[in-house]
C-alpha cells in the first residue's frame, strides 16, 4: 500500500527522466510540473478539467494534469510538451497556422500526439471526439483540423 500523509519527496518519470519532486497529497500534477519542475508548457486554463490547456500524456493517454494528483503518478510515465522532440504534430501546427496566442497549443498538441500514437488511422469522428476535449479561443479550429489531418492522413 502506498501511504503519503504529508509533504514528501517522490519520484516521477517525466519525459524519460526520473525526477525527484517535493509534493503534498493535495498537489495537482499541473502544479508540480510547473512549480517543482519548471515545465511550464502545460498551462493552467481553468484548473477544472474543462479547457485542456494542461494536457499531458500519461502511459500513452492524454490526461488533464489539473485534475490528477501528483502522488497518483508514482510508477507512471508522464510526457509533457517539453518531452516531444520534433513530433510531426509540432511541425504541422506551425505549417498550418494552428495557433495564435499559443496558450492552448501545448494541450492541443499533446492530445493530437496521443491520438496519433493510439489511433494512427483515426477518422474524422474519432479525431473530433479527442480534440473536443480542448478549447481554443483564438483560432477557428479549421487550422487545427488541417494540422491534425495532415499527420493522420498525409
Amino acid at each position: 500500500m502506498i501511504k503519503i500523509s504529508d509533504t514528501s519527496i517522490i519520484e516521477l518519470d517525466v519525459n524519460g527522466e526520473k525526477r525527484k519532486v517535493v509534493a503534498e497529497p493535495s498537489d495537482t500534477l499541473l502544479y508540480t510540473l510547473r512549480t517543482e519542475l519548471n515545465l511550464t508548457g502545460a498551462k493552467p486554463g481553468c484548473e477544472n478539467g474543462d479547457c485542456g490547456a494542461c494536457t499531458v500524456i500519461v502511459d500513452g493517454w492524454s490526461v488533464k494534469s489539473c485534475i490528477v494528483l501528483t502522488v497518483e503518478m508514482i510508477g507512471h510515465k508522464i510526457t509533457t510538451i517539453e518531452g516531444l522532440k520534433n513530433a510531426p504534430i509540432q511541425k504541422a501546427f506551425v505549417e498550418k497556422w494552428g495557433f495564435q496566442c499559443g496558450f492552448c497549443t501545448s494541450g492541443f498538441i499533446m492530445v493530437c500526439h496521443a491520438l496519433a500514437e493510439q489511433h494512427p488511422e483515426a477518422d474524422e469522428y474519432v479525431t473530433e471526439e479527442w480534440l473536443q476535449s480542448n478549447l481554443c479561443r483564438c483560432t477557428s479550429y479549421q487550422e487545427i483540423k488541417e494540422a491534425v489531418t495532415s499527420i493522420l492522413h498525409p
Binding site: R34, L39, T40, G41, A42, K43, P44, T80, I81, E82, L84, Q90, K91, F93, V94, F99, G102, F103, T105, S106, I109
Partner: peptide
C-alpha cells in the same frame, strides 16, 4: 509556441 518554451506572464 509548439515546444513549450513560449513564456507568458503566468509562467
Amino acid at each position: 509556441k509548439v515546444d513549450g518554451t513560449a513564456k507568458y506572464n503566468i509562467d
